[in-house]
C-alpha cells in the first residue's frame, strides 16, 4: 500500500492530477444537480394552481 501511494517517487504529481480530476468532476455534478433542483423549486413556488379561467376555450365554428 505504501509503495502504491508513493507512485515510484511521482506521488505529488500523480495524486495532484487525480485529486484535481475528482474535484472537477464532483463540482460539475454538484453544480448541474443544484441548478436543476433550484430551477424546479423556483418554478414550483411561482407556479399558480391551475386556473380554469385560463384554459384555452374551444369554440365551435
Amino acid at each position: 500500500m505504501k509503495e502504491f501511494l508513493a507512485m515510484g517517487g511521482y506521488a505529488v504529481y500523480v495524486w495532484a492530477a487525480y485529486g484535481m480530476t475528482v474535484v472537477v468532476i464532483a463540482l460539475n455534478a454538484w453544480a448541474a444537480q443544484r441548478r436543476l433542483r433550484r430551477t424546479l423549486g423556483e418554478l414550483k413556488t411561482t407556479a399558480q394552481p391551475e386556473d380554469p379561467a385560463r384554459r384555452p376555450t374551444v369554440r365551435k365554428v
Binding site: M7, G9, A17
Partner: peptide, 20 residues
Amino acid sequence: LVLAPPDYLQGEGFRIIYVH
C-alpha cells in the same frame, strides 16, 4: 492506477495519462 504496468521511461508517473 493498479493494473496497467509502469512505463519503461516514465515509471509510475505516466499514470497521469488516464486523466489527462
